[in-house]
Design a protein around this nucleic acid. Structure first.
Lengths: 232, 232
DNA sequence: ATAAAAAAATCGAGCGTTCGCTCAATTGTG
DNA sequence: CACAATTGAGCGAACGCTCGATTTTTTTAT
């Protein structure tokens, strides 16, 4: 895979792209051989899962419902995962992976100035969660109710994305573009602002706020709270 | 009930006080006559429900588990509610009621200055969610996955508490203590900051942040974002 | 004060249903 | 015709919920 393909893949948030990534990561659990068949069926299964789980919880969603909604029979479902928990994990993992991949690879031109980097992070986070809305809603709702292994993974994912924000704020403080006493705390407060965009999406839709407006206002709010020195 | 009792009751966030309030609101569903028996059993049932639902979701928690954890038999449980959905509703309603009651009744001395009012709201919200941590965690996690009737109630409760913040910010803008272009938007951003305190409590505990520190820092962050004019 | 009667509260086995999951049989594919 | 992929009836287990039997508490009669 060359650099262009890698980049293309990095930012492919289509259902096919995301399910392709899921297939790679669970190659030995998926018993279907041909990738193009596996991916197209995974798309159907995960679309159905996200749709049904947005109305009721994942736990309340039965595999029979997923089977009916996706058009994949009960038996076939188990060629794509070995348990309902694995299906949950596939989706949660993919959200975490995509988030880290995208937010962790900013374009070079924003890296020089922490303010630009911060703005890019906010814009990109809003755009990403917009493009993958059902995925992020699902992950937010189901990560907490997840027992054993997934809990730890959810915490790590949460901390990974918080660290990205903390580092840019710390750098900004060092370069005197931001004035804030505790960068870690500030970063921890930016996250819920961005989460609100997809968690309470219907509220924002009702108020006629779109993605661009939302990220503009969050940037505004955060920059004031960070006492931004615009000159730097 | 005289004023003192009303006030005492208003701020009684003990398990007994909260379950007493639940009993009042569901008097015809609870088939047990004597209030002291009903309340003491409701305490056991709801304590067990909150405890079990914090590990797994409410949906994943069975009534047999609640029966075992609370020491109340399966049959007896149904003397206190007529369905599992009603038990869920009892808890969600109580959280909404308590929040509105407490945040909607600030002491008179803070009403003169919007800044003081805002500070009181933030402090009180943090204290309240601290005192009722399992309740708020439960409400946050389960409100979304709630079908039909509860969904609307959850939205209304959310908007009620957001309105309280919006009104104080609007008043502050009129009196020129705050400078912010859209009070409704600012209020909408304050809420998730306060929610983070109980939603991701284990994170804050791990970092050694207590309630007082948290509310101090949130006040700091918000006041900067609102461009507070301290003189007013 | 005590026993009998009435009422209130508790109990858990059992009902019908649905769940996650399996597998022998069937269908599609190169 | 070998192999990949799909199917859905059927399995045991667990679910929400009910109800007649039982225990506990309160009231009444003596």
């Amino acid at each position: 895979m060359n650099a262009t393909e890698a980049l293309k893949k990095l930012s492919d948030v289509s259902m096919e792209g995301l399910c392709g990534s899921i297939l790679e990561r669970h190659r030995e659990t998926v018993r279907v051989q041909k990738p193009h068949i596996a991916i197209s069926k995974l798309v159907l299964i995960i679309e159905a899962t996200l749709k049904l789980s947005s109305r009721q919880s994942f736990h309340a969603t039965s595999l029979r419902q997923i089977s009916e909604e996706s058009g994949v029979s009960m038996g076939s479902l188990y060629s794509y995962f070995d348990s309902k928990d694995t299906l949950l994990l596939m989706i949660l993992d993919q959200v975490a992976t995509t988030t880290t991949n995208i937010l962790g690879n900013p374009p070079e031109e924003v890296l020089a100035k922490p303010l630009n980097h911060l703005r890019w992070l906010i814009e990109t986070h809003v755009e990403l969660t917009d493009a993958m809305l059902p995925w992020f809603n699902f992950a937010f709702l189901e990560a907490k109710s997840f027992p054993r292994f997934g809990r730890k993974a959810a915490i790590e994912s949460e901390e990974a994305s918080e660290r990205i924000f903390r580092e840019v704020i710390e750098k900004g403080v060092q370069q005197a573009c931001f004035v804030v006493e505790d960068p870690a705390f500030a970063a921890a407060l930016v996250k819920p602002l961005l989460q609100d965009w997809y968690v309470k999406r219907s509220k924002w839709r009702r108020r006629g706020i779109n993605a661009k407006e939302y990220s503009t206002r969050v940037k505004n709010f955060v920059e004031k709270a960070l006492s931004v020195n615009a000159a730097t």
